[in-house]
Structure formats: structure tokens, C-alpha cells
Amino acid sequence: MRAILLRRLATAIPTLFAVVLASFFLMRAAPGSPFDAERPLDAATRAALDHAYGLDRPLLEQLGRYLANLAQGDFGPSLVYKDFTVTALIAQGLPISLMLGGLALAVALMTGVSGGIAGALRPGGWSDRAVDFAASLAVALPGFVTGPVLALIFALWLNWLPVAGLNGPASLILPVIALALPVAGAVAKLTRTGLSETLAQDHVRTARARGLSPFAVLWRHALAPALIPVVSYLAPAAAGLLTGAVVIETVFGLPGLGRYFVQGALNRDYPLVMGVVILYAGLILFFNLIADLLYGLLDPRARG
């Protein structure tokens, strides 16, 4: 188990470092300056700005300074949100994004796994076909379509829920549903396939031969191996939720990390974009680690 974790870390750290390097040089290689977006600046003001943000130094020196600051958790100043550091912006947005993503992941896993079980228990039955249809539809429902459509129906037409903004738990319901739907669909499909394969396996017959109840057979013997594909999907799902959150936060006007990212990207706010990308890469690597741990729990063979 420890060997797996060490190996994972051995790839994760260089990957993260490569992300930092790649995004740093990409951003510096970009044509145009962040200050272009506003009115044309005279040369003196521009030079002063560049100097103030250290953009006139040699590239390697800029990199060195960036890395040194990064090691202390300092992502540098935001170029667009003046008076804010990137770290402060992240500290503001991250909790909202994490809550949104965490709730969506929980909803997706619960509905997806129970839907998949309902489908697999009676293959070909009406519940199976209904779950299959719903899951096929759900995986094809991107947040940028479901978000506005849900807002249209439940906020504008029915007036049940707030249309945008962050006031109380009710304002999270629509964003979480819109974000969770595609992931729930994928989890349901994976659970359905995994479980129907597992139920046909020899060790399940052994458990039935012992005279166990169908519930005990499912719970103790079939579910763990059946969920292995779901666990492998966990890291991609986390990535999908993070990207989905970008759109959902924009649609529902939630002041999360994703919205800062889009604003940063549109305004060429390099330090902000880099900070968010590095943070997201770290989060995804972390989810990979969690997935590996769960994997070992479900399948002792993976522990080596």
C-alpha cells in the first residue's frame, strides 16, 4: 500500500512541477500584455506597470521568484483585480467551489450507485431500462445547458428557487443538480455494468450456495468488486466537476474559483490563471491518490 502511494507521489510531484513550468512559460510566451485590454497606455506608464509587477526582469529570474513565492503559498498579485493577491482570491473562491463540487459529487455518487444497483438487480426489467435511459440522457446533459434550463423552469417560470447569487442553501440546489447530473449518469452506467458482471461471477454463486440472503450477497460479496470501475472514474469525475463548476458558477453567478478563472482567462490575468490551474492540478492529483487508496480497499490484489 505504501509502495503504491509513494509511486503515485513520485509521478504526482514531477507532474505538478511540469504544470507550473508549462503554464509559466506559456503565459510569458503569450502575445500581448495584460494591460493592453484597457486604453492604450503611454510608454512610461506601461514601463512603470511592468516594473511594478516584475515583468521587466529576465525570464529565469521571474520564474525563480515565482517558484520561491509559490513554495510559501504566495501566488503573486492579481493583475486585474487590483489590490488583491491571487492567494486572497483563491481563499475567497475555493470554499464555495469546494462546497459546490463536494455536494455535487455526493449527490452523483448516491443517485448513481443506487440507480446502477436498481438496474443490475433485474436485468432487462423496467427499472433497468428506465435507469439506462435516464443515465444515457444525463451523461449528455452539459451544465451549460441544464443550468440555464433549470433556472428557466424552477426560478423564472415556477418561481420556486432563486435564479442566481448565493443566499442560503436554496440557492445551491439548482447548481448542484446541474453539476451532478452528468457524473451521476456515468456512475450509474459504471455501477450497472460492474454489478451485473460481478453478479455473474463464481464467488457470488459461492455466497448464494452458503444460503445467504440476497441482501447479504449483494452487500458483502458483490458490491465491492462491482464498484472498482466507479473508483477508477473518481479522478476523471473530479476533473469533470471542477471544469463543470466553471460554467455553473458563471451561469448561477456564484463567486467561486471557476468564475475567477474565466474572468482571469478573458482578461489575461496570468498570475490568477496560473494559480487556479496549479491548484486544480493539485486537486486532481489528490483525487487520484484517494482513488488509489479506495482501490486498494476494494481489491486487495491491487495492494501488491
Partner: peptide, 27 residues
């Protein structure tokens, strides 16, 4: 039917071929 068979199954013992797959891998 299945619920009535269960206690009778438990009176017998079953050893299947391919023990590599007939034992639950995660227990």
C-alpha cells in the same frame, strides 16, 4: 422458491471449481 431453498442450501456445502474465482477476492 428462493427463500425456501436458502436454509436447505445451508445444510449442504459446496466446493466449486476454479477456487481462484470462487472465493470473494476482497474478503
Amino acid at each position: 422458491d428462493e427463500p425456501a431453498l436458502r436454509p436447505l442450501r445451508a445444510r449442504a456445502g459446496f466446493a466449486f471449481q476454479q477456487p481462484a474465482t470462487a472465493l470473494s477476492p476482497h474478503l
